[in-house]
Amino acid sequence: WRSPRSSPRRAARGVAGATAGRTGAGPAAGPPSGRGRQRRVAEQPEEPAGDAKKKVMEARASVDVLLKAVGDTPIMRTKKWASFLKLMGLRFIYVNQSFAPSPDQEVGTLYECFGSDGKLVLHYCKTQAWG
């Protein structure tokens, strides 16, 4: 017996997601701003960002993480991240607007358990929002 949730396709995605923290995961896997991105763009000047994202989704090399600001937290320049690296600097992160993920929980695990439509929605803020 296999649950539909653990079909090989999903499992592959989850495992890949677990390594999403590595910047080398794919063209769109790095932080969307900063030096890393610029260097990558310089290497592939002909590739628009949208295509890069699509390519990653096709290759299932990473998990789409959608970040939403809470309250008066400044909104980040871009809401879509394929990398979890920068997240670590944020003070409070919430899944499903209800709980903070465990400190050593992998993004792939969070996505498998709480993601939907290929996205994991995380809310972030500087102070505690949901008890």
Binding site: S6, G14, E106, C113
Partner: peptide, 27 residues
């Protein structure tokens, strides 16, 4: 890896109870 956590239902689609062995076999 810190730990494995996945979605796992306590009841199989046929209605029988899933066991600890079923969980381990699956994940």
């Amino acid at each position: 890896r810190p730990f494995i956590q996945k979605l796992f239902r306590p009841i199989a689609s046929g209605g029988q109870l899933h066991t600890l062995g079923d969980l381990l076999k699956d994940v």
